[in-house]
Write a protein that binds this DNA or RNA. Structure first.
Length: 647
DNA sequence: GAGCACTGC
């Protein structure tokens, strides 16, 4: 395929932007071309990054198989917790883009590598963008390092300009170039509605029925925005399928979203009998993360859920937003992998033309605390001037810097503190939790701190099947304590260990066994980090106050106070907050002061994972953050803010 | 009485 062309351009240019549809085979072919052309000689390694762990593993597996080699030798992969590479023999190394950033801490100029391929760059994941900024810097010092950016069409020129070091008008001096490779997919007919659709859920259900009644055999993939919508549409289409039974072709309707248990997810990959049409109702998980073979018809509602971060309130949330043209193209393409297909867009062509070309990169809609910490650790002192492919707003950057300063990770000059800041960057956790763990030695509760941090990484520890909610709630109350969710999670973990990590015990107590096993692994990793920093593993032996104070050390910025209006308000910004119904504090008597782990935005702003605190701790532990010394003064400040706001 | 797409160290 474009073998010689690619190799020629890589000799001539430092950076090659390779444009081609996903699934065109380039992920597996290009690394092998590079290897055969000698880019893996003299001990050099060819590195390929992927935004997702599974992709890194499966592509590595596929190539190893093609070449008849054992995975972990010539072909290897490295992702968090798993390193299947061999220091001497590995020539092609797959990794996640996050892993590459981590690798840079050990090998700042990537001297081991001759080529780095950033695959799926058009997705613009947070770490792909960071990698691009860092690689550009490295290239100035290492003219021999080659970079391949593999992307879908839209961003190609932007990437080429970003990496091009030629500042003259003479294009023969360019250091970056673009090459388009053709995909192997089949044409897809795009259909639009003739007028705007009032309700895309109804329209999706109707479209499935119409396809089933009027179009030839072929499976259907419909994109909706969330679990809720998928389940709603599912119920209606199952009813429809039942009414249809007996008349011609059967209909098999299946849901697909990330929260769905693995065995149910697997069902969408099963092949149906000849007389059955499969309909998959999916979230955007089916846009990039998974590929279902045999889809001939795609229905695109025109919306998806996206992470959104507000630099003003510091609240991270998810919002429903119109898709971009790039997403719409990607969705439609899912119909043309087997033979030519049809994509039904539930919006007009005029509406399509008004859509943004591409979604805003993740970099520009995330909290950047962790990312800034990592950049500082890599020697980027002035992150505000760092060359990102799409720079985040100054406000977001300052918010991130503020947080790191408050947590003691950086000093007055923006320099990483020693040892706290440097150690925080080493933790695979958000900065608040990293600080909580690193100071836990002073509270004699390192043991409890890493357990709590590990438990907070896993969502849905408590299982609540819709038909047995009452029993599940009762089971949960057995672990619940008045101090709140953090100590409750600690109890659950301890009980899990003293019951020999029994899956049966979990089932009886409505606990998520897999989730608990995962927090066990994460906890082991954190324990290793404690050892690395020579912090002894020590339990507070039932002294709960020490643990609570330790939590406040990391989370004083997330403090809230009960407000007479019947909800909570953050101390710092006076934002309205509510208790999430999954909190153990939801059904107990009102506690005036709390800290929370995170805010969940869905209609209202909910605090998830809360702990009751003594307000004195706030100014004892964080006088620099709460400038007003006494509780009375904090209250006075709060009142002042209240008066200035019409409510 | 809620339910968030996805990903990563």
């Amino acid at each position: 395929m474009y073998r010689n062309h690619i190799l020629y351009l890589l000799e001539k240019y430092q950076t090659l932007v390779l444009v081609g549809e996903t699934g065109s085979g380039k992920s597996t072919q290009i690394p092998q071309y590079l290897l055969e052309a000698g880019w893996g000689n003299k001990g050099f390694v060819i590195g390929i990054t992927q935004p997702r762990r599974v992709a890194a593993v499966t592509v590595a597996q596929r190539i190893a198989e093609e070449r008849g080699s054992i995975l972990g030798q010539e072909i290897g992969y490295a992702i968090r917790f798993e390193n299947f590479t061999n220091a001497e023999s590995t020539r092609i190394k797959f990794m996640t883009d996050g892993y590459l950033v981590q690798e840079l801490m050990r090998d700042p100029l990537l001297l081991k590598y001759s080529v780095i391929v950033l695959d799926e760059a058009h997705e613009r994941s947070l770490y792909t963008d960071i990698s691009m900024g860092l690689l550009k810097k490295i290239q100035r010092k290492r003219a021999d390092l080659r970079i391949v950016i593999a992307s879908a069409t839209l961003d190609a020129e932007k990437f080429q300009q970003f990496f091009n070091q030629n500042e003259t008008d003479d294009s023969s001096l360019d250091t970056a170039t673009i090459l388009s490779v053709e995909g192997r997919s089949y044409p897809v007919d795009i259909m639009y509605t003739s007028s705007p659709v009032p309700n895309y859920l109804d329209a999706t259900v109707n479209a499935v029925q119409k396809i089933h009644e009027t179009l030839p055999a072929g499976d259907v993939l419909a994109f909706l925005t969330g679990q809720d919508e998928v389940e709603k549409a599912l119920r209606r289409l199952i009813d429809y399928a039942r009414d249809q039974s007996g008349s011609g072709m059967k209909l098999m309707v299946l849901p697909m979203y990330s929260n769905l248990p693995a065995q149910d997810q697997m069902k969408v990959f099963q092949r149906m009998g000849k007389n059955t049409r499969k309909v998959v109702l999916a979230t955007n998980i089916a846009e990039t993360s998974i590929t279902i073979n045999g889809i001939c018809y795609v229905i695109d509602c025109g919306f998806h859920k996206l992470r959104a971060f507000s630099a003003d309130s510091g609240i991270d949330g998810v919002v429903v937003a119109p898709v971009s043209q790039a997403s719409a193209t990607q969705r439609a393409g899912r119909a043309g992998r087997l033979r030519s297909g049809k994509a039904f867009r539930l919006y007009t062509e005029t509406e399509y033309n008004k859509l943004p070309q591409a979604s805003v990169p993740e970099m520009q809609r995330s909290d950047l605390g962790t990312a800034i910490l990592q950049l500082k650790c890599l020697g980027i002192d002035n992150v505000l001037r760092f060359n990102f492919p799409s720079a985040p707003s100054a406000k977001t950057m300052i918010r991130g810097l503020d947080l790191l300063y408050a947590l003691g990770a950086i000093d007055d000059f923006g320099k990483l503190t020693e040892p706290l800041g440097i150690r925080m960057a080493d933790f695979p956790l958000e900065p608040k939790l990293a600080r909580m763990i690193l100071v836990s030695g002073q509270y004699g509760c390192t043991d409890e701190a890493i357990t709590i941090a590990a438990m907070l990484q896993v969502k849905n520890i408590f299982h609540s099947p819709p038909n047995r909610k009452l029993a599940a709630n009762k089971a949960k109350r057995k672990f619940a304590v008045k101090e709140g969710d953090h100590i409750t999670l600690l109890n659950v973990y301890d009980a899990f260990i003293s019951n020999n990590k029994s899956s049966r015990w979990c089932q009886e107590h409505y606990l998520n066994y897999k989730g608990l096993m995962r927090s066990l692994t994460i906890r082991e990793q954190l324990e290793r980090l404690l050892k690395k920093f020579k912090l002894p593993l020590k339990s507070s032996e039932g002294d709960v106050d020490s643990i609570l104070r330790c939590i406040v050390e990391g989370f004083y910025g997330n403090a809230a106070r009960y407000h007479p209006s019947g909800c909570y308000r953050t101390i710092r910004d006076n934002n309205e907050l509510h208790i999430h119904p999954t909190s153990v504090l939801y059904s107990t008597k009102v506690q005036p002061w709390v800290v929370f782990h995170e805010i969940l935005r869905s209609g209202k702003d909910y605090m998830r994972d809360m702990t009751v605190i003594d307000p004195k701790w706030l100014y004892e532990l964080a006088p620099h953050y709460y400038q007003y010394g006494t509780e009375r003064e904090i209250a006075a400040k709060r009142l002042k803010v209240d008066h200035s706001e019409p409510t």
